[in-house]
């Protein structure tokens, strides 16, 4: 168990590319933090620096109360789960799980006990004598988890551990990993580019973009109060609607349609509204043209035009709509305003 603290951590690769700009954040003991962002934004780089697999170019990293900038990965008291599982192909599941303990000179009987406990926790007991090639993807994933939990480390690191699984298994493993982490109370950093994983698993989410932190916050904060248009459009499926709007005289208006009261300077702004914060009905005040209705079973998505701008509306499964003109209204409390130039929330 340990808290982790990054202080102006920076990464410049030998070819001169700055993959992570100086970045600082703290992770509390037992917290589950998810790093999320588009491909190439530096998530893995950051995680690998914490693991010690990549040199830290600048800044200070501490795990527990110890500065670990120059500590070998094996001595950082961490365990890592890799995207491709990275199981040793020639070793049985038992040996795979126990290998880290064996290298730390743990007595054989103790290794066996710990491996049994971990295997039981992960439903692997009957597979202990198999080789990784004789396991399904989900089982391999569990072995990789087993290898991490058996060492009882201070910190778990996950690099997109579920991205090789099919949707159903991913859902199941997501819940299992989260439950396991809850139970063990081990501080965890989890990298993913899947925002559903981020939302559902995290205590706190860190959104990265181009090597820079865009926002740190709880899933609800990230979702409802995005700090920038980047976060607004990255988190959520479908993403937040971003409309070109204009501020004047204490109101923000989108053409002749939406108009909300807001204390902003006169001039262009970007107005953000989540698809589910828009209502439709005959008594609503704004005309809207539906082009396409996306049927998703539990709900429907209406894609259409609002005064020449694209807009998506989320409606319940009981609301029957077909393409054509309808009327809508927005929940003014749910509106988020962004600077039109910088994209930062106002």
């Amino acid at each position: 168990m340990a808290q982790v603290s990054l202080n102006n951590i920076r990464k410049i690769y030998p070819n001169g590319y700055e993959a992570v700009v100086p970045t600082s954040f703290d992770i509390a003991d037992g917290e589950f933090v998810v790093l999320v962002g588009p491909s190439g934004c530096g998530k893995s780089t950051l995680l690998r620096m914490v693991a010690g697999l990549e040199d830290i170019s600048e800044g200070a990293l501490s795990i527990g109360d110890r500065n670990v900038n120059h500590v070998d990965p094996a001595d950082r008291d961490i365990a890592m789960v890799f995207q491709n599982y990275a199981l040793y192909p020639h070793m049985t599941v038992r040996k795979n799980i126990g290998y880290g303990l064996k290298n730390r000179k743990t007595p054989a009987s103790e290794i066996e006990d710990k491996v049994q406990t971990a295997a039981k926790m992960l439903n692997l007991t009957e597979y202990l004598d198999r080789k990784p090639s004789q396991l399904s993807g989900g089982q391999r994933q569990r072995v990789a988890m087993g290898r991490a939990v058996v060492r009882d480390p201070a910190l778990f690191l996950f690099d997109e551990p579920l991205s090789n699984l099919d949707a159903k298994l991913r859902h199941q493993m997501r819940i299992e990993i989260k439950a396991l982490q809850r139970r063990l109370g081990v501080t965890s950093i989890y990298v993913t580019h899947d925002q559903v994983e981020a939302m559902t698993m995290a205590d706190r989410i860190i959104v990265l973009n181009a090597g820079r932190i865009e926002q740190i916050g709880t899933p609800a904060e990230i979702y409802h109060r995005p700090a920038s248009t980047f976060v607004a459009s990255f988190m959520g499926a479908p993403p937040m609607n971003l409309l070109t709007a204009k501020g004047s005289g204490g109101r923000v208006t989108v053409g002749e349609t939406i108009s909300v009261a807001a204390e902003v300077a006169d001039g262009p702004v970007t107005l953000g509204i989540r698809p589910e914060d828009i209502e439709i009905g005959p008594t609503c005040d704004i005309p809207f043209t539906v082009d396409i209705v996306e049927e998703l079973g539990a709900h429907r998505l209406l894609h259409g035009q609002l005064g020449g701008q694209e807009l998506t509306i989320h409606v319940g499964k009981d609301v029957v709509v077909s393409a054509g003109p309808i009327r809508m209204s927005i929940n003014p409390d749910a509106v988020v305003l962004f600077d039109a130039k910088s994209g930062l929330a106002l």
């Binding site: 094996a74 890592m80 290298n103």
Partner: peptide, 20 residues
Amino acid sequence: ELVEAARIDGAGPVKFFIDI
């Protein structure tokens, strides 16, 4: 990743060569 997993598992250069 296999190399890195072994590093985290505490396998030094000689162990990695022989065990993996």
